[in-house]
Amino acid sequence: MKKGDKVRFLSEIGGGIVAGFQGKDIVLVEDEDGFQIPVRVNDVVVVENDDYHVNPIAPEPKSHEEKDYAPAGRPVTFRAEPEERRGGDALSVYLAFIPVDPREMTRTKFEAYLVNDSNYYVAYSYLASEGANWSMRSVGEIEPNTKLFIEEFDKEGLGTLERVAVQLMAYKRGKSFMLKPTVDVQLRIDTVKFYKLHTFQENDFFEEPALLYTVIENDQPSRPLVIDAKKLRQEMARKASNDVGPQVVRPARKQVKDEPVVVDLHAGELLDTTAGLTAADILNYQLDVFRKKMEEYKNHHGAKLIFIHGKGEGVLRHAIIHELDYRYKGCRYQDASFREYGYGATQVTIK
C-alpha cells in the first residue's frame, strides 16, 4: 500500500485515496470531500475502482464475554488513548524533510513531516512566508509520540519555503496535565541543503535519512527568527558612544550622476561588536539595513544600488534575493561587477 492507492474500509462502507501515513500502523484515507481519516492499515484494502459502497465484511460472531454493550442502534466508538512514555512530558516537536528518491537528488520530490516526540496532543499550524504576508500550508492535530505527513513538494516549491512558521498548542485528553505555553517559532530553511545528499542524516524518527529542524525541544522553543531589539539598541548605542570624540571634518563627497550607491552589509561594518548576538540577530539586522536603503531609493527610478554581502555560505544573499522577489518585484537585480566588488555583491536597479 502506498500514497495514491484507492482503498475501501473493511468494517464499514466507504473509502478513498491514501494521502499519507502516521507511523507504521495508521493510514490517512482522504475521502471524496477532502477529509483525511486515520484508519488502521489492517482495516482497509486496496481496490481497482472507485466503488467504495460495497457491504463491509461482517465480523465473526462474538462470545458473550466479547459483546459490545452499547445502546441499541449506536456504533461503538471507543478508542484507546495512546500510551505515554517515561520522559515524554517535556514537549519536543521537530519539522522533518525526507527526499522521496535519494538517488535522484537533482529531480526528487520531498515530503515534510511534523514529529511529536512527547506525551501531549499537539494542535499545530504550519505556514510559509509570502513577503510580508503568510500562507497556511497545513493545520491539524498530532497524537502523542507520532509523526504526521503534512505535504509533498518539488524543487520548484523550495522557493516558497525559505521562511516558515510553526505554531503549537499542547494538551492532554481525559486527565490533568502541566500547562505548556503556546509556541510560535519562525525557521529559515536553507534550501541549498536540499541539493546535497549528506544533508539528510540518520535519526531516531525515520528509517530513512532526514533533515530535521527543531521547533521545540525539552520545553525550550527554537530561537524565533526575529531580531532582539534590546540587544541591537545596546550595540548601536555603544557604537554611537565610541564614535563620540575629536572628528576630522572632511568635505562631503559629491555623488557622480549614475554612480551606484554602495552598501556594505558585512556585520563588521554595521556593528561595532557582535558579542551576545546570534547569527539570526545579525542576519535580521542586515536585512533591516537592506530594506531601509531600498525604501530610501524606491522612487529614484533608474538608481543602482550595490549590496555587498560577501560570498560565505550564501545565507545573506539568499535572503536578499527572497526580499527582491517578493517585496520589491519591480526591481531588477544581477550579480555586481566582479572586478569592482568581488563575487559577493548584488546590483539592484530601481525601475
Rank of each mutant, 00 (worst) to 15 (best):
V348A: 10
P224Y: 02
R223F: 09
R8S: 04
E60N: 00
V348Q: 12
V192A: 15
D272H: 09
K298F: 10
S118L: 11
F194I: 13
R188E: 15
F290K: 08
L277C: 02
Y195Q: 07
L283I: 01
P71S: 03
P71Q: 07
V122F: 01
A58T: 08
N203G: 01
Y297M: 01
F35K: 12
F194N: 09
D190A: 14
V18L: 06
P251H: 13
H64A: 10
I216D: 04
Y52P: 06
K304R: 15
D264L: 01
E156Y: 02
P75R: 00
L114T: 08
G34W: 14
P221E: 03
N42Y: 14
V29A: 04
E30I: 00
N299A: 13
H301V: 12
T108D: 10
C331V: 01
F177G: 03
N218K: 13
L161T: 09
A80D: 01
H266E: 13
G15V: 14
I321M: 13
I98S: 00
K298V: 00
S11F: 10
L179N: 08
A303P: 00
F149G: 03
K109Q: 04
K257S: 09
S92W: 06
D5C: 10
D25H: 11
S11M: 13
E295R: 01
V248R: 14
I282N: 10
F177N: 00
S118C: 09
K196Y: 09
V185E: 11
D33H: 12
L232Y: 09
D288M: 08
N203Y: 05
A267Q: 09
V215Y: 05
L232F: 14
E30W: 01
L95I: 00
V44K: 01
V183M: 13
G73Y: 10
K172R: 15
G276I: 06
T146F: 10
V45C: 04
L148C: 07
N116K: 11
A240D: 14
G140Q: 12
L271E: 00
R173T: 02
I306A: 09
E60S: 02
K147R: 12
S11G: 04
D50C: 03
I216F: 01
N145P: 00
E83D: 09
N55S: 06
T214S: 12
A303D: 14
V166A: 07
I17C: 06
K254D: 04
